[in-house]
């Protein structure tokens, strides 16, 4: 009897703990939403109350005064390009590396895996970009991002590749397929589940990057979240506009999160369970 009462009490306590934790996450969102609709004076008080009068024009002002629209275009263009190139390059590389067992293949696997642990050398990269005249260009950003996303993408693809039987390759070869044709028509479609994970992971990574944009590109190449940085510099005393701008910047992420959460979890945990 007393045992079940105790278990129930503990259960109740744990529920309460999780509820409080959840509130710590929801309260800031609430604060952003309500204050983004107030006038400057009351928004600067950063309160919880529902706005007395809805100032939807805050949002109109944000789109007028910030680079939000340009940022959205930059983010999507850079993100999509990187995701496409990185997806093709890493799936092809992973295919070779997991099928071939030569010395070169073993070395190259380690070569890419090192990128998961060793930090990026920013200053020397800056020099390389300077020599190649790639600083502050879309091409330079895409090249760097693809290079940075390759290790994890190859790692994810390699893990999945092991589940695809070699017999499929051999059957295709007997039927007379050429290597590239075989890969894109037979193997690549089978990789679809992990491809989605790689796409979601890489896109979020590029979209939310701070360091690469700060070092290698000017404000006109920045994606939506980074435009908040410019906006904050100009309107640091106007929380009505700032909160509206922040909300504009995080809504695409939220939408993306709702659809991509499953894949983010599988990407994140791919390496964390012993196979």
């Amino acid at each position: 009897m007393s045992h079940t009462v105790k278990t129930r009490l503990i259960k109740l306590l744990l529920e309460a703990v999780m509820l409080i934790v959840a509130l710590c996450y929801l309260a800031p969102v609430w604060i952003i939403v309500v204050n983004s609709l107030k006038d400057t004076l009351s928004a600067n008080r950063i309160g919880y109350s529902w706005p007395k009068l809805f100032h939807f024009d805050n949002y109109a002002q944000v789109f007028e005064k910030s680079n939000a629209l340009q940022g959205l275009i930059n983010g999507v263009v850079i993100g999509v390009t990187v995701v496409l190139i990185a997806g093709f390059l890493s799936s092809m590389a992973a295919y070779y590396l997991s099928r071939k067992s030569s010395g070169f293949s073993k070395f190259t696997t380690l070569y890419f895996v090192s990128g998961l642990i060793i930090p990026t050398a920013i200053i020397p990269t800056y020099f390389a970009m300077l020599v190649l005249k790639l600083n502050n260009t879309y091409l330079g950003l895409v090249a760097i991002f693809v290079a940075y996303t390759l290790p994890l993408s190859i790692f994810l693809y390699s893990g999945f590749m092991r589940t695809i039987p070699r017999e499929i390759d051999e059957a295709a070869i007997i039927d007379g397929s050429r290597p590239m044709q075989m890969f894109f028509r037979i193997i690549f479609p089978l990789l679809a589940p992990v491809t989605v994970t790689v796409i979601v992971f890489n896109f979020i990574g590029v979209w939310n990057d701070v360091t690469t944009y700060l070092y290698f590109a000017g404000g006109d190449k920045w994606p939506l979240p980074m435009t908040v940085f410019q906006f904050y510099g100009k309107y640091s005393q106007r929380w009505d506009l700032l909160f509206a701008d922040i909300l504009v910047a995080i809504v695409p992420c939220l939408i993306f999160f709702v659809f991509g959460q499953k894949y983010m979890v599988s990407g994140l945990t791919a390496g964390s369970v012993k196979a």
């Binding site: 070779y96 190259t108 990128g115 990026t120 050398a121 020099f127 390389a128 090249a143 760097i144 693809v146």
Partner: peptide
């Protein structure tokens, strides 16, 4: 299959490092 990734990764990650 692996060459494009290898070159890009070498150029913008390994060589700078």
């Amino acid at each position: 299959f692996v060459l494009p990734a290898f070159i890009l990764f070498s150029l913008f990650f390994i060589l700078p490092n």
